[in-house]
Design a protein around this nucleic acid. Structure first.
Lengths: 143, 143
DNA sequence: ATCAGTGCAAACTTTTTGCACCGCA
DNA sequence: TGCGGTGCAAAAAGTTTGCACTGAT
């Protein structure tokens, strides 16, 4: 937790951006979630007004503290950037209820995936700096 | 092209849904794109009113003719479903300009990816029926 | 001929912004 | 104490829907 604030704080400080009470709260909620959250969820969990949630997420995104991802088009979802969590992960997306959960692959699998992607990029003259793997299927609850 | 209309037509017919002139046009534009298109792009390219574009895409999605995917939260993107194109592909997403392009992996790579995902799913008690791989980076234009 | 589909316009949802006030560096 | 941040409310952007008319089967 202190580690979280330390990392986020550093990143904000390096851009001369303040780390307010509201921003700390957002970071904590995101860190505790274990999955990407929608703005509605963030509003509910933090009690902050929508405008502050949106604006702070935008700031966080610019600074590289959060990533904005979208599974459905109607709600954006946000998660802490991997630079902050120091943990690379992917998503299990339930195509029935729309639930999204974080998941981690073991090192060998991740290495293998990276190798595949590198080959793909070479063929396409595209400079890779990351990847996003969503596994689509049915979650425990919906099965 | 005829093959496209044949496949889409069959799928619609099986659900007792009509294949109107407007729907043919949407299917053709999507097939010609080589990348997922936004609703704005579809409106521009087809000349159809927004409401028809949205409604027909919703119908197509229900019937399994198109997939709705979202890279940014502000614009949904649509592409023909793999059942229709008979071609599995992934996306190269430019993090600078937001451009998205289709890309295909060779059979060995795809098999390897599938194996990795299967392992991931077993570990998580999640029933997999597909995957989505986005390669993030910088496109030729932005490099 | 019938009922799904169309086009317009209006409603609704999600996200962004203007503005006056507040509080941290 | 100044300037970035906050909260409210209003606007903008994107998507959906009601309704009367049209057209594919």
């Amino acid at each position: 937790m202190d580690r979280l604030h330390d990392r986020v704080g550093r990143r904000l400080a390096s851009r001369r951006v303040r780390y307010s009470r509201q921003r700390r709260e957002l970071a904590e909620v995101l860190a505790a979630a274990g999955r990407p959250l929608t703005t509605a969820e963030l509003v509910a969990r933090t009690g902050l007004p929508q405008s502050s949630v949106y604006r702070n997420l935008a700031t966080f995104e610019q600074v590289g503290v959060v990533d904005r991802i979208a599974f459905a088009a109607d709600h954006a979802r946000f998660e802490l950037a991997e630079d902050v969590t120091a943990r690379h992960h992917h998503h299990l997306v339930c195509t029935v209820c729309g639930a999204v959960e974080d998941t981690v692959m073991n090192t060998r699998q991740e290495r293998s995936l990276r190798r595949i992607i590198a080959a793909l990029a070479t063929a396409g003259a595209f400079e890779v700096d990351g990847h996003r793997l969503d596994v689509l299927g049915t979650c425990r609850v919906c099965a």
